[in-house]
Design a protein around this nucleic acid. Structure first.
Lengths: 260, 260
DNA sequence: CGTCGCGTTGAACCCATTCAAACGAGGTGG
DNA sequence: CCACCTCGTTTGAATGGGTTCAACGCGACG
C-alpha cells in the first residue's frame, strides 16, 4: 500500500460508469485513429450505437451468436474464451481498456469465442453494418482491421509458444512480465499492480492447474522475486524473472530436425 | 499397400514440378474464388509473379523478413513455425496444396513466422503490391483476406485448446482425426494416408516429446485403433479415436468459475 | 450465522520427459 | 559390393514436475 501511488489498475474502475466525454475513455486513442482519420469528428457519434456497462460475470457475447456489435472497451476488463461441445473451456485472453472485441468474427459473422466481463466494464457497442460501411469507404480503416486481426494472430502465436515450450514456472514468469509491460504502456506502475483475474483464470489461460499457480506464486515470493497477497502483485526482481522466462535448460532441440 | 489405392498423399508429389495449367493446381479453386470474381481471367497471369519450386528443407521466408510475396501452395507441404531469440521453436501449422501463406504479415509487412518446405513443394509467388492493388479495388478480395486471417485465428484457437486442455493421447487422436478430415476434403482416403511430417515435427506441433509420439502411436496400434509403419498411417477404429479425442475424464472444471 | 467463491497448503500419485541405446533406411565413398 | 555415416524412428528405465484429491482459512453476501 504505497502512499505515493501510481495507478495500480488502469483507467478501468475510476470511470466504470459511462464517461460523458470520450477523452476520458481508455479507448480514446484507438477511436481517434480509427474513425477520425476521415476528418469528420461527428462521425464517432453516428457510428457508436450504444454505450453499455456490464457487471462482473456478465456476457458480452457467446460462441455461435451472430455478430451484431463490435465492442470497444472503455474501462474494466474482459476475458475471452473458447469452449468445446463437451464443456472444456480455454481462456484465450484478458482484455482491458482500449481493446477491440469481436473483430475476429467479421468474416462469417458468427462469434467464435465468448466474452465475459471480469469486473464492472464499460464498452461502446459499434454496429457492424455501420462499421463495414465505413471500412468500405476508407482504406485506412480496413488497414486498422487488418492490424488488429494480425495482432490477434500474433498474440495467439505467443500463447502457443507459451503452452508448447515452457514449464509452469516459466509460464507464470512470462505472464507476469507481459502484464508488467501492458501496465507500463498504460502509464501505470510496471512493478506493482492488481490482477483483474482469479488464480483459476490464470491457470486456465496458462494451461496449468489453479493450485500450481498458487504454489509458484508462493515460491516466487519465498525467493524474493515478487511479493503477492491475493490479487496485489509487486515485482521485486524483474531481472531474475526475465532470466526464468528466457531460460531454456531443456534438451537442446535437434537443430537438424528443423530442416526436415 | 492397398492395390485399389485411393491417393495416399494429396495432389502434391504428382506434379511437384510446375504444372503448365492452373487447372491441375491444388490451389485452383482458391485462385478462382480469389481473382476471377473480377471476371477477368487474364488477371491471374498478371498477378502471379513467379512460379517456384522449393526442395525439402528450403525456406520460403524467415521471421523478420519483409513481406514481398504471398505464396499459394500448388503442391507439396510446408510447415510454419515461430522461434524466440533463445532458439526455441514451435511449429504452428502444416500446410498443403491450396493454402495461402504469408497473409498474416500483411499489416506490418514483416513475416512473423518462418515457412519451410517439408518435401518438394511448388508454389505461386504473388507480389504483395499487386495483390493489395487488387484488394483495394475489389471488396470481394478484401473479404477473402479477412476470411483467411479469420480462419488462421480459428486454427490457432483450436491448437491452443489442444495444448492447454488435452493430454498427449488426446492430442494425437485429435491430430490424426484432423488430418483425416483434411485428406477427405481433398478427396483422398480419410482412413489411410501418408504423413508428410516427421515424428519430431508432430511432437513439436503438439507440444509433446518425440518419444511420446512414438509410444502413443505404438499404443494405438497395439489397441487396434490404427496401424502405422513409419509415415504410413491407417485409421482402423475412428469411433474409438473420436471417443479418446472427446473424452474429458479430468476434474470437472468449476463451472461457477466461468462467471468470475 | 451459514454458505459460497477464492486462495492456500499438504501428500500421493502418475503421466510425460529425459537419457540412453539400438535398429532400419538411405546416401556416400572407398 | 560393402563399410560407414547420418537421420528418423523405436523402445526401455528412471526421474520428476504437475496434477489430483483433500482440507482449511478467509472475506463477501444473503
Amino acid at each position: 500500500m504505497s502512499k505515493h501511488a501510481l495507478k495500480l489498475i488502469p483507467s478501468s474502475t475510476e470511470h466504470a460508469d459511462v464517461p460523458s466525454d470520450c477523452k476520458n475513455c481508455g479507448a480514446y486513442h484507438l477511436c481517434m485513429s480509427l474513425w477520425l482519420k476521415t476528418g469528420d469528428s461527428s462521425l464517432l457519434e453516428r457510428v457508436v450505437k450504444k454505450k453499455q456497462v456490464f457487471k462482473r460475470g456478465e456476457v458480452l457475447y457467446r460462441m455461435g451468436q451472430p455478430l451484431e456489435y463490435i465492442y470497444v472497451i472503455r474501462g474494466g476488463s474482459v476475458k475471452t474464451c473458447v469452449s468445446t461441445e463437451d464443456g472444456e473451456v480455454q481462456v484465450m485472453g484478458f482484455h482491458t481498456a482500449g481493446e477491440l472485441l469481436g473483430l475476429n468474427a467479421i468474416s462469417n459473422r458468427e462469434h467464435k469465442c465468448e466474452a465475459r466481463a471480469m469486473g464492472v466494464t464499460s464498452v461502446c457497442e459499434v454496429s457492424v453494418e455501420r462499421f463495414e460501411e465505413l471500412a468500405k469507404k476508407d482504406p485506412a480503416i480496413q488497414y486498422e482491421i487488418l492490424k488488429i486481426m494480425s495482432a490477434e494472430i500474433h498474440h495467439g502465436q505467443e500463447l502457443l509458444l507459451l503452452l508448447g515450450k515452457h514449464n509452469a514456472e516459466e509460464r507464470i514468469a512470462i505472464f507476469l512480465l507481459n502484464l508488467s509491460r501492458q501496465f507500463e504502456k498504460r502509464h501505470c506502475s510496471a512493478t506493482e499492480f492488481t490482477l483483474c483475474m482469479s488464480r483459476s483464470d490464470i491457470g486456465n489461460y496458462l494451461g496449468i492447474a489453479e493450485e500450481t499457480v498458487c504454489r509458484i506464486f508462493a515460491r516466487f515470493q519465498d525467493d524474493g522475486l515478487i511479493s503477492s497477497e491475493y490479487r496485489n502483485v509487486k515485482l521485486k526482481d524483474i531481472k531474475r524473472l526475465e532470466q526464468i522466462a528466457n531460460q531454456r535448460p531443456l534438451r537442446q532441440t535437434n537443430v537438424a530436425s528443423l530442416y526436415s
